[in-house]
Computed example of a mutant assay.
Amino acid sequence: MDTNIDFKNIWNKQESEIPEVKTLYNMANRFKRNNLYKLIAVNLMLLLTSIFIGFIWYYFQPELVTTKIGIIFTISAMIIFLLPYNRQLSLLFKNKSEPNSKEFLQQFIELKEKQIFQQTTMLSVYFIILSLGIGLYLFEYVLKMTITWGIITYEITTLWILINWFYLRPHAIKKQNAKLNKLLAEFKKLNHQMMD
Rank of each mutant, 00 (worst) to 15 (best):
residue 1 M to P: 02
residue 2 D to F: 14
residue 3 T to G: 04
residue 3 T to A: 05
residue 3 T to R: 06
residue 8 K to D: 05
residue 9 N to R: 15
residue 11 W to F: 15
residue 11 W to Q: 09
residue 11 W to S: 09
residue 12 N to C: 08
residue 13 K to V: 09
residue 13 K to Y: 07
residue 14 Q to D: 02
residue 14 Q to A: 12
residue 15 E to Q: 10
residue 15 E to A: 10
residue 18 I to M: 14
residue 18 I to N: 03
residue 19 P to G: 03
residue 20 E to L: 13
residue 21 V to G: 02
residue 22 K to Y: 03
residue 23 T to D: 03
residue 27 M to N: 09
residue 27 M to P: 00
residue 28 A to V: 09
residue 32 K to C: 10
residue 33 R to A: 14
residue 33 R to W: 11
residue 35 N to Q: 13
residue 37 Y to T: 07
residue 38 K to L: 14
residue 40 I to C: 08
residue 42 V to G: 02
residue 44 L to Y: 04
residue 45 M to P: 00
residue 46 L to K: 07
residue 46 L to H: 06
residue 50 S to P: 01
residue 51 I to A: 13
residue 51 I to H: 09
residue 55 F to P: 00
residue 55 F to S: 03
residue 56 I to L: 14
residue 57 W to Q: 06
residue 57 W to G: 02
residue 58 Y to L: 10
residue 58 Y to C: 04
residue 58 Y to N: 04
residue 61 Q to H: 13
residue 61 Q to A: 13
residue 62 P to L: 12
residue 63 E to N: 07
residue 63 E to H: 10
residue 65 V to L: 15
residue 66 T to D: 03
residue 68 K to C: 03
residue 68 K to F: 04
residue 70 G to M: 06
residue 70 G to R: 04
residue 71 I to D: 00
residue 71 I to G: 00
residue 73 F to G: 01
residue 73 F to A: 04
residue 75 I to Q: 00
residue 77 A to H: 01
residue 77 A to R: 02
residue 78 M to A: 05
residue 79 I to W: 05
residue 82 L to R: 04
residue 85 Y to W: 11
residue 86 N to I: 13
residue 88 Q to N: 12
residue 89 L to Q: 05
residue 89 L to D: 01
residue 91 L to D: 02
residue 95 N to M: 12
residue 96 K to W: 08
residue 97 S to R: 11
residue 98 E to A: 11
residue 104 F to T: 07
residue 105 L to I: 06
residue 106 Q to W: 09
residue 107 Q to M: 14
residue 108 F to T: 02
residue 110 E to I: 12
residue 111 L to E: 02
residue 111 L to Y: 09
residue 112 K to V: 05
residue 113 E to C: 07
residue 114 K to P: 00
residue 115 Q to P: 00
residue 118 Q to N: 04
residue 120 T to A: 06
residue 121 T to F: 15
residue 124 S to W: 11
residue 124 S to F: 14
residue 124 S to R: 13
residue 127 F to D: 01
residue 129 I to L: 11
residue 129 I to W: 01
residue 130 L to F: 12
residue 130 L to K: 03
residue 131 S to P: 00
residue 133 G to A: 05
residue 138 L to Q: 04
residue 139 F to N: 07
residue 140 E to Y: 04
residue 140 E to S: 03
residue 141 Y to N: 03
residue 142 V to P: 01
residue 143 L to E: 10
residue 144 K to M: 12
residue 144 K to T: 09
residue 147 I to V: 12
residue 149 W to E: 05
residue 151 I to T: 07
residue 151 I to P: 01
residue 152 I to H: 04
residue 152 I to D: 01
residue 154 Y to S: 01
residue 154 Y to W: 09
residue 155 E to A: 15
residue 156 I to A: 11
residue 158 T to F: 15
residue 158 T to S: 15
residue 159 L to M: 13
residue 159 L to Y: 07
residue 160 W to M: 15
residue 161 I to D: 00
residue 164 N to F: 13
residue 165 W to F: 13
residue 166 F to T: 03
residue 167 Y to V: 15
residue 169 R to Y: 10
residue 170 P to Q: 05
residue 170 P to G: 06
residue 172 A to I: 11
residue 174 K to E: 05
residue 176 Q to M: 10
residue 176 Q to R: 14
residue 177 N to E: 14
residue 178 A to F: 14
residue 179 K to W: 08
residue 181 N to C: 05
residue 184 L to V: 07
residue 186 E to R: 06
residue 191 N to H: 07
residue 193 Q to W: 12
residue 195 M to R: 11
residue 195 M to I: 08
